[in-house]
Each structure stands twice: as structure tokens, then as C-alpha cells.
Simulated assay, not measured.
Amino acid sequence: MAEHYIKIKAVDLNNNCPECYSKDGLRLTFKQKFVETSFYKSITSDIKYEMDCTTCNTPIYPVKWTEDIERVFEYHKKAFTPKQASTHLKKVTWLAIVSIVFIAVCIAATVVYSLL
């Protein structure tokens, strides 16, 4: 089962980086969990937030956020609308469902025919 996060939205922030103090390098990224198996594809409601600085190439963890960064993060978090959680069944799954239903119908027809 392959689980990974797909990038939904990236926002450039005008706050100072807590590492290099650059004003134009902070980027906030919103990612949503995507699961793919042999039978289905699914987008879950699990959201992951990442912040990094493109100037010093450093991930910025929440313990290093200033009050200004926290305030901007909360604003963007409220404005963010994730993709709706959904599941898509693959052809293999549909073939398995159809074959199980077909076998059940055949068994039921055989039982009914043998009772007549």
C-alpha cells in the first residue's frame, strides 16, 4: 500500500525566517494524504503542513515559529480548503465484485432449479 502526501497549495509568506532572517524565503505548503493500493485510490482528510525557507533551504518547525508566523499560519489554515475525501475503485475491484455476484447468482439458480 503506497501512502504519500500530495501538494495541494503552497503560499509564499512575507515574514522573516527564524534561521536566516530573510524576508522573502518562507513558504507554507499544505499537503493531503493519498493512498493507492491494487484495489483502490483514496484521498483522505489527513492534512499535513510544512514550512521551509527557500533562501537558506531549512525546514522551519513549529517550535521556531514567531507569533507573527503563527498568526499568518492560522489565517492561511482557515482559508485553506482541502480536496474532498474520496475513494475510487479500480477495475480489478469491480471485476472481483461482478464475479462474486455472478457466482452467487449461479449458486442460487442451481439451488432453485434442483428444488423444482
Rank of each mutant, 00 (worst) to 15 (best):
residue 65 W to G: 07
residue 113 Y to W: 14
residue 79 A to Q: 15
residue 58 T to N: 08
residue 60 I to T: 00
residue 89 L to Y: 15
residue 44 T to N: 03
residue 74 E to C: 02
residue 82 P to F: 06
residue 111 V to D: 11
residue 58 T to K: 11
residue 102 F to V: 10
residue 105 V to N: 03
residue 58 T to H: 05
residue 56 C to M: 04
residue 41 K to E: 14
residue 66 T to K: 02
residue 29 T to S: 09
residue 14 N to M: 03
residue 80 F to I: 00
residue 44 T to I: 03
residue 1 M to K: 09
residue 82 P to K: 12
residue 27 R to L: 04
residue 47 I to Q: 00
residue 40 Y to P: 07
residue 88 H to W: 07
residue 77 K to R: 15
residue 27 R to C: 05
residue 24 D to P: 04
residue 41 K to D: 11
residue 46 D to H: 12
residue 93 T to D: 06
residue 104 A to I: 03
residue 46 D to T: 13
residue 51 M to L: 11
residue 110 T to S: 14
residue 109 A to C: 14
residue 41 K to W: 05
residue 98 V to K: 07
residue 67 E to I: 07
residue 8 I to K: 06
residue 36 E to C: 02
residue 103 I to C: 11
residue 68 D to F: 02
residue 90 K to I: 04
residue 13 L to W: 01
residue 6 I to G: 05
residue 15 N to K: 09
residue 33 K to N: 05
residue 93 T to S: 15
residue 37 T to A: 07
residue 44 T to Y: 03
residue 108 A to W: 13
residue 77 K to W: 08
residue 113 Y to M: 05
residue 108 A to H: 10
residue 114 S to F: 09
residue 26 L to C: 09
residue 4 H to I: 00
residue 2 A to P: 00
residue 42 S to H: 11
residue 80 F to N: 01
residue 112 V to F: 13
residue 74 E to R: 12
residue 56 C to A: 04
residue 101 V to P: 04
residue 26 L to S: 04
residue 39 F to N: 10
residue 106 C to E: 09
residue 81 T to F: 06
residue 88 H to K: 14
residue 7 K to R: 08
residue 78 K to C: 08
residue 3 E to Y: 05
residue 50 E to M: 04
residue 25 G to T: 10
residue 81 T to Y: 05
residue 78 K to W: 06
residue 54 T to E: 13
residue 106 C to R: 08
residue 58 T to L: 02
residue 34 F to S: 04
residue 64 K to E: 10
residue 46 D to Y: 06
residue 52 D to I: 00
residue 69 I to E: 02
residue 115 L to S: 11
